[in-house]
């Protein structure tokens, strides 16, 4: 059933705190956000893209930072996925964006992560991506997914 964007409450914010080595928060937050987006009647493709971004971005915080927060801002026109962390920062963003480049430790690789696909996956699934980082301080990742062209039509 298509949902009329005018009947939909704008600006919903979901927020999740991510602790160090809180390995399962990423999947849980992706899963919970998916349910919310389904209830709002967003189409499957948009939900999939947002879920991938959340999973990868939150996992990056878990793996690399000491703590952080994940925010999902849902607006009638777009969804923002934002992670803000306190951590080592990214010394070379271009290198970090390269598929296959990773600084993840062994224990994370053993879980099926750390293949150097996190940031590339986020980029591939977002319409806009902004990364602000300061070495030794932390990183903010803002990924945006536009909801135009049927974002509100259930697939």
């Amino acid at each position: 059933m298509p949902v009329d964007p005018l009947q939909y409450t704008p600006k919903i914010t979901l927020e999740f705190k991510i602790g160090e080595k809180d390995f399962y928060m990423a999947g849980e937050s992706a899963s919970r956000t998916k349910r919310t987006l389904q209830q709002l009647g967003l189409n499957q493709e948009v939900i999939k893209r947002v879920a991938i971004i959340i999973y990868e971005a939150a996992m990056n915080v878990t793996i690399h930072a000491t703590k952080g927060v994940l925010k999902i801002l849902i607006d009638p026109n777009e969804i923002d996925v934002i992670t803000e962390d306190e951590g080592p920062g990214i010394p070379d963003i271009d290198l970090a964006m390269q598929e296959g480049y990773s600084t993840a430790p062994y224990e994370v690789r053993e879980m099926g992560f750390g293949a150097g696909m996190g940031l590339p996956n986020i980029k591939q699934n977002s319409d806009e991506l902004h990364i602000e980082t300061k070495v030794g301080v932390g990183t903010t990742v803002k990924a945006k997914v536009y909801l135009k062209e049927g974002g509100f039509t259930s697939a």
């Binding site: 390995f23 399962y24 990423a26 999947g27 499957q44 879920a51 991938i52 999973y55 990868e56 996992m59 879980m111 099926g112 992560f113 293949a115 696909m117 996190g118 996956n121 591939q124």
Partner: peptide, 23 residues
């Protein structure tokens, strides 16, 4: 690899893996 699963698992896909964690 979880990142590969996220990109390639579509609705109705059967996932085969040797990972056994909650991810």
């Amino acid at each position: 690899l979880i990142s590969e699963m996220l990109i390639n698992v579509t609705p109705g896909t059967l996932l085969i893996t040797s990972l056994t964690n909650a991810h």
